[in-house]
Each structure stands twice: as C-alpha cells, then as structure tokens.
C-alpha cells in the first residue's frame, strides 16, 4: 500500500484550490490515499453557502491571469469542488477540517459542505499522514 499524500490547504483562492483539487484527483486515480487538511481561508471556502462563490485569485495572477482563468472556466473547466467530488468518487480521499480553524472562523461542521468528512486536530492529521509527504498550499 502506498503512503498517503497529505495536502494542507491554507489558501482560499480559486486558483490554489483548483490546483489542489487536480493534484488530489491525480493521486486518487493512481489509487494513492489522499488526506486533505483544511485550514484558515481554505476552510472558509468550504462553507456550504460559500463553496459555489467566486473566491478570487492569488495576487500574482493580475488582470491577465484573471482573464486566462475565466477563459478556461467559460470553456467548461470543472470547478475545484466538482473535481474534488470526482476524486472522492474514486475513493481514498479524506477531507478533514482543522479544529483550530473551525474555532477561529466560528463555524460548526453543519456549516460545511458535505465534501468535508470531519473535524480533527493537527496531531490526528500527522498520525494519518504517516510517512507520506506533506504539502502546504
């Protein structure tokens, strides 16, 4: 059994969440377990009433980057939430909210999209990560 790949999602902009979703789907396609740990602004983007919104782009995108991202979306690119749903359908993808970030943002699990499997602390995250790589996005 392959070691899991462990992605800590911190940034809540659509470009970084999209990149993370594609990395997740690729690993899941290879049968590799993937653990996603949602912190700060990434967690905020997973609120059920906000997940479908425009979450902006990283500052380095600029107007030209915005235009490229919009063009791909207009051409029919699946959004990050949809890509994560597809990855979860393949199996082996676990999405956990950081309990500290839940307190920080004042939210309960009921406020989160069903993509999120649960809430855990950083110790549980590292224990689940085992010897697998940890990537911070």
């Amino acid at each position: 059994m392959d070691e899991p790949i462990n992605l800590i999602l911190f940034s809540g902009t659509d470009d970084k969440l999209q990149a993370a979703a594609v990395l997740t789907a690729g690993a899941a396609a290879l049968g590799r377990p993937v653990n996603l740990f949602l912190q700060y602004w990434a967690l905020d983007a997973f609120r059920s009433e906000r997940i479908g919104r425009d979450h902006g782009l990283a500052p380095e995108s600029g107007p030209e980057g915005r235009a490229h991202v919009d063009a791909l979306r207009t051409a029919g690119q699946a959004g990050w939430a949809e890509t994560l749903r597809q990855a979860k359908d393949l199996g082996g993808v676990d999405i956990q909210a950081c309990s500290l970030s839940m307190d920080l943002l004042g939210i309960e699990q009921a406020d989160l999209d069903p993509l999120v499997d649960g809430v855990e602390g950083v110790t549980a995250f590292y224990l689940n990560a085992g010897a697998g790589q940890v990537v911070f996005i």
């Binding site: 396609a29 890509t83 393949l90």
Partner: peptide
C-alpha cells in the same frame, strides 16, 4: 473532448 485535465482520465476510470 472539451473536458480539461484531469477530467478525461476521471471519465475513463468511471
């Protein structure tokens, strides 16, 4: 066709 990475692979796996 018209689906972006990793969409085609996702569809093939399904």
């Amino acid at each position: 066709r018209g689906s972006f990475c990793p969409g085609p692979l996702m569809e093939l796996i399904r």
